[in-house]
């Protein structure tokens, strides 16, 4: 279980004003949970993820993973970034193996495990390619395989498909669901696409900015339904899905309107 308990993060902006990027946010991510944080940009999604990853200390509150308090980054939390962070001087398989190399695992074993992960993300044929030879979607798949290699307890993904075209994006969503089902990892996923959030999450938290807060939570089942039926278009076109999508859109716009009215 990953537990975020009354976490607050305050930044000092360049002009000296205090930004309340995160204000007493609490969140549980259960085993096998796929939690999606949804919200317009600036509402503290990345701040929350960076705090869980250990890149950012909290101003207040605690984050625990399996009862242990999070104090810094570690291989028990795999991170996938929006901007691909593959090393351009290493080929695909060595990029995937990076965490294993840091763990001191022998080269042969590194490659055996990395090859398995590449198969999982559908890139078995690209083990020896270099990142600059791959498309954006393929690079993100390598990023996912790399984050999984150290067998983390949770996968943290900050708008991983944000820079992809919509077609590739949908393929990646489906791939991620299959990876999630096969590995049984917890996932914490950030997006500002309502549709993506609804399709992927077992739980969606909707956030609003200034101060960054969770304003709504939804427990969902679309992703499990997709895992059974394998028909994404049917699910996304179902009245249940579209109704909820419009409801959340209204919620997001409402939160936005309230904020701009206050300013």
């Amino acid at each position: 279980m990953l537990k975020v308990d009354h976490a607050s993060v305050h930044f000092e902006a360049d002009d000296g004003r205090i930004v309340h990027a995160l204000d007493r946010v609490s969140l549980d991510i259960p085993d096998n949970g796929f939690v999606v944080a949804l919200g317009a940009s600036g509402c503290g999604k990345s701040t929350l993820l960076n705090a869980i990853a250990g890149f950012l200390p909290l101003s207040d509150g605690v984050i625990t993973l399996n009862g242990k308090s999070v104090v810094g980054p570690g291989a028990d939390r795999g991170v996938v970034f929006q901007k691909d962070t593959l090393l351009p001087w290493k080929n695909v398989i060595d990029n995937v193996a990076l965490g294993l190399k840091f763990a001191g695992i022998p080269k042969l074993e590194q490659h055996r495990r990395s090859a398995e992960l590449l198969k999982l993300v559908g890139l078995a044929d690209f083990a020896n390619a270099f990142p600059y030879e791959l498309s954006g979607g393929m690079r993100q798949r390598v990023g996912i395989a790399r984050a999984l290699a150290t067998e983390p307890d949770i996968l943290l993904m900050d708008e991983p498909f944000g820079a992809l075209d919509s077609l590739t994006r949908e393929q990646m969503q489906e791939l991620l669901v299959s990876v999630w089902k096969k590995t049984g990892k917890r996932v914490f996923f950030i997006t500002h696409s309502v549709e993506e959030a609804l399709f992927l999450g077992t739980q969606v938290i909707v956030m609003s900015p200034r101060p960054g807060r969770i304003v709504a939570r939804f427990d969902l089942d679309f992703v499990n339904r997709f895992a059974e039926s394998n028909d994404a278009r049917e699910i996304k076109a179902s009245p249940e899905f579209t109704n909820l999508r419009e409801e959340i859109r209204a919620l997001l716009h409402g939160a936005h309107d309230i904020r701009s009215a206050a300013e």
């Binding site: 980054p73 570690g74 291989a75 970034f81 962070t85 790399r146 290699a149």
Partner: peptide
């Protein structure tokens, strides 16, 4: 880029590894 450093640290890179490999 700071993302590259963060990525390596979340993969368990020690300070020495971070210097040598990143």
């Amino acid at each position: 880029p700071i993302e590259r450093v963060n990525a390596a640290r979340s993969l368990g890179a020690s300070r020495f590894r971070l210097f040598l490999n990143i």
